[in-house]
Computed example of a mutant assay.
Amino acid sequence: MIGTLHLVGVGPGDPELLTLKAVRLLGAVPVIAYPTTGEDAALALEIATPHLNAAAERLPVAIPMAVERGPAQAAYDGAATAILVHLRAGRDVAWLCEGDPLFYGSAMYLVARVGPHAPVEIVPGITSLTAAAAVAGRPLAARNEMLKVLPAPLDDATLRTELAATPAAAIIKVGRHFDRIRMLLAETGHADGAVVVEHATTPRQRITRLADFAHDERPYFSTILCYRGTEAWGETAGAGA
């Protein structure tokens, strides 16, 4: 009997924010696979470790952090091959994914590679976006307002156009793009209602108004929540952070 690949969202950082289903599966599966990088090592594994089957075999997969897509795609090819060896032997595998597997997650690359050959089950998780809103204590949007999720690596023209058409936005993948994003938010009128959330739900968590960031500071693992709407909560967004 062929095993099942479980793509498990482990949430934004706090080990207590996994779902009951995720905890049950991780405590039972015989093989735990997870991505590793040279920057944050294996964050998904770090988050999930308190809930793992202690006897499970661990299968780390090195994912190159390069702009070119080729090396990472090759890594996922290798991951799928290694995972399928276990599945064909009847062993279930859990792939750990930060946040939610299908919200800018690595799991999407395994669905296409493993799905045609073995059962795949997706266990959703809490995203960094909703975690950031929760710890900042502010809505993402209100009533009939639009909310746009915008990756910071997009070019200036695209970001400027998208921001101009929305009262509320969440900027993700900020990293080295912070200075450029700050300037764009000032142009579009979103800066005054913007808050930067770093390492949400972890011991390193920090919440700062965008306006209070020193010009030589560069938050890396962060999300920027910004608002230019008319709801009353927007007037005090990020207060007391």
Rank of each mutant, 00 (worst) to 15 (best):
L129K: 05
L17Q: 07
A22T: 12
A89L: 05
A200P: 05
A152G: 10
P167D: 07
E235S: 09
A194V: 08
R176F: 04
A191G: 03
I47Y: 00
A42Q: 10
A186N: 12
L150T: 07
A66T: 13
V197M: 01
H215L: 10
G234N: 07
E46S: 12
R180Q: 08
Y109P: 10
D216P: 03
N144I: 02
G229V: 13
R228V: 05
R218I: 09
K21A: 13
A168I: 01
R209A: 00
H51R: 01
Y227N: 01
T230Y: 09
G137L: 02
G99Y: 08
L18V: 08
I2C: 02
T166R: 06
T4N: 14
L45I: 14
L52M: 13
E145V: 02
A211Y: 01
A54L: 02
T188N: 12
I32L: 13
I224K: 01
G240K: 01
P64Q: 15
A168V: 03
L45W: 10
E162R: 15
R24I: 04
M183A: 14
I172N: 05
L17N: 06
G90M: 11
L26W: 08
H51Q: 10
G229F: 11
V111W: 02
V114A: 11
E235D: 12
E235G: 03
T201D: 04
L17K: 12
K148N: 12
L45V: 15
G78Q: 04
A112H: 08
G90C: 13
P119F: 02
G125W: 06
G99N: 06
I63E: 11
H199M: 06
L110N: 06
D40W: 10
A44G: 09
P30F: 13
A152S: 13
N53L: 11
T166G: 09
E198S: 09
D77L: 11
V85C: 05
T223R: 05
L185E: 10
E57M: 04
L140V: 14
L84Q: 15
P151C: 00
A232M: 05
T208K: 02
E121L: 07
V149M: 05
D192M: 04
P71T: 05
D100K: 00
T19V: 14
L7S: 03
G175S: 15
A136W: 06
P203C: 00
L163F: 14
K173P: 08
G240C: 00
F213R: 08
A42D: 13
T161G: 00
R228I: 01
L140C: 13
V8C: 11
I122F: 07
H117P: 02
G193V: 05
A211R: 05
E57F: 11
A168E: 08
A132H: 02
G238H: 00
Q205N: 09
K21G: 07
A132W: 05
D155H: 09
R180Y: 12
D179M: 03
T37L: 13
A74I: 06
G229T: 11
T158H: 05
P219A: 07
